[in-house]
């Protein structure tokens, strides 16, 4: 099953009366459980693509389906709900809420989903332990390093077990070692939890580790390479569902 389906996606921006194309007729399908990177030079439409998939921006033309839902027919409220329940975001600049501690930042998404206080805290602490931040749960973002903040952002993105995590250059503000460690973490989560990750990046390290690499230039797909060896590790939709279900059972037993 495809988590993301894009057909004939076009996005034009109007600048000083001129129409500037950012994305030109893209067709892409992303399967459940994939670990995919969109490799692009700056200004080639990667953020636009991610924003459209995330329901933050609307296409000029084309069809975008996320988790089976056609985004073109959704209003702002429905898109907000889709982002809350089906999509996790990881931003280049971490974008944590500065007045909340690490655990509160993670809890915030669950709060929006209406999860009970006790359950929120249990799941948030568990996910922070998983990303190696058990000692930092009560720290405010300003008291943490960039790497730690991005780990909190990852925890926030996955705590509600979304269908897909969209990561916009997640390693861009990190040093190589921290970036590698974060990628390992996300790859591990992709494998253990079956969460689909879609990156935009121009970081060669991210490109190397992706199971699938889509090269985008001037708003068009240049190549779509599935790494044979790594692609084998990609779960089918059925496998991803099985992983989620077993995760749910584990949570239930806790």
């Amino acid at each position: 099953m495809n988590i993301i389906e894009i057909q004939g996606l076009t996005k034009d921006y109007v600048n000083n009366g001129f129409s500037v194309p950012a994305v030109r007729g893209i067709n892409v399908q992303v399967g459940a459980g994939e670990f995919t990177a969109i490799a692009v030079p700056s200004g080639s439409g990667k953020t636009t693509l991610l924003n459209i998939i995330g329901g933050l921006d609307r296409p000029t033309a084309g069809l975008v389906r996320v988790g089976g839902s056609d985004l073109s027919g959704m209003d702002a409220r429905q898109l907000s709900d889709l982002r809350l329940r089906k999509i996790g975001f990881i931003f280049q600049a971490y974008n944590l809420i500065p007045v909340l501690s690490a655990v509160e930042n993670v809890e915030y998404v669950l709060l929006l989903q209406g999860v009970s206080r006790v359950e929120r805290r249990r799941r948030s602490e568990a996910i922070l332990r998983e990303v190696g931040l058990e000692k930092e749960i009560n720290r405010l973002p300003r008291e943490m390093s960039g790497g730690q903040q991005q780990r909190v952002a990852v925890a926030r993105a996955i705590v509600s077990e979304p269908d897909i995590v969209l990561a916009d250059e997640p390693t861009a503000n990190l040093d190589q070692k921290t970036g590698e460690s974060l990628l390992d973490l996300m790859h591990g989560l992709n494998r253990s939890k079956g969460i689909t990750f879609l990156f935009s990046t121009h970081d060669p390290m991210v490109m190397e580790r992706a199971d699938r690499l889509i090269n985008l230039k001037d708003g068009r797909i240049l190549s779509d390479e599935v790494r044979g060896k790594k692609r084998a590790g990609t779960k089918t939709a059925k496998q991803a569902k099985t992983t989620k279900a077993s995760r749910g059972k584990t949570a239930g037993r806790r």
């Binding site: 907000s80 982002r83 809350l84 931003f91 974008n95 500065p98 929006l112």
Partner: peptide
């Protein structure tokens, strides 16, 4: 402004 945008992008409703 940016922070509120982040809150909205992760699913915070306008009414909140």
């Amino acid at each position: 402004f940016h922070e509120i945008g982040v809150m909205k992008s992760i699913g915070t409703k306008p009414s909140w």
